[in-house]
């Protein structure tokens, strides 16, 4: 505890500098839809979340307020893949509820006739074969079988704890393992940590 306070003090200057450099908030980020004409509420969180009567069909969904995708996804596969990849679940399914391009961004709060669809670089589509796999269990066993992955239960994520603690969700890798949907660190492409020198990739990949 004492040590942590010292570190906090030591980097307090950097903290402020960081605040100047990065937006470090969802406000003004790509996920800030409060000023969109189709969001007549003008609210920031409402496109995804609601305090009451949330959709609980997706496990771990945080007070979900957005129409959920029903797409059947083509999954990533490769000859050297040791993980067992299933249909997107958990928070990944929530991300894909906009980014697969089948559900309108403005299908929230019970609305299903939206017209705003993700396009351009943010469009993942339903073919996930060209995307990093998600929704698979990443544990010490997988790391041992693969040989090219760090053990998530013992490897530091660089975020304060282990990979398992900081980047996995119920032991699974999800979109949110790499992306911070709320842009709290303000890194481009909503990454949870900088990918300078491929640091994000090499957190898990022992290459």
């Amino acid at each position: 505890m004492k040590h942590a306070k010292f570190v906090t003090f030591l980097f307090s200057g950097l903290l402020m500098l960081n605040g100047l450099l990065f937006s470090q908030t969802i406000s003004g980020s790509a996920h800030d839809f409060s000023n969109e004409t189709w969001n007549t509420t003008g609210e920031l969180c409402i496109v995804c979340h609601t305090p009451h009567h949330a959709d609980v069909t997706v496990g771990d969904a945080p007070l979900w307020n957005h129409d959920v995708t029903a797409a059947n996804f083509t999954l990533y596969n490769s000859a050297t893949l040791d993980a067992t990849v299933g249909q997107p679940d958990g928070s990944s399914k929530l991300c894909l509820s906009c980014h697969d391009g089948t559900v309108a961004v403005d299908n929230f709060g019970g609305q299903t006739n939206g017209t705003q669809f993700v396009s351009g670089g943010g469009l993942i589509g339903t073919d996930l074969n060209d995307d990093h796999p998600v929704s698979f269990v990443y544990d010490a066993t997988l790391a041992g079988n693969d040989g090219g992955l760090f053990d998530p239960t013992t490897t530091n994520s660089g975020l304060g704890g282990t990979i398992d603690e900081d980047m996995l969700f119920n032991g699974k890798l999800q979109c949110a393992s790499c992306h911070d949907v709320h842009n709290s660190s303000g890194i481009a492409k909503l990454l949870i940590k900088p990918n300078s020198a491929s640091a994000l990739c090499l957190t898990c990949h022992s290459k």
């Binding site: 942590a4 530091n156 975020l159």
Partner: peptide, 26 residues
Amino acid sequence: MNLSRIMIILAGLLIPLLLPAQSVVN
């Protein structure tokens, strides 16, 4: 912003140096 975010940035710089000798990095 919190301490862990700062650590992220530092880790990003340090991780290449901490990787084992037989990493692609070398």
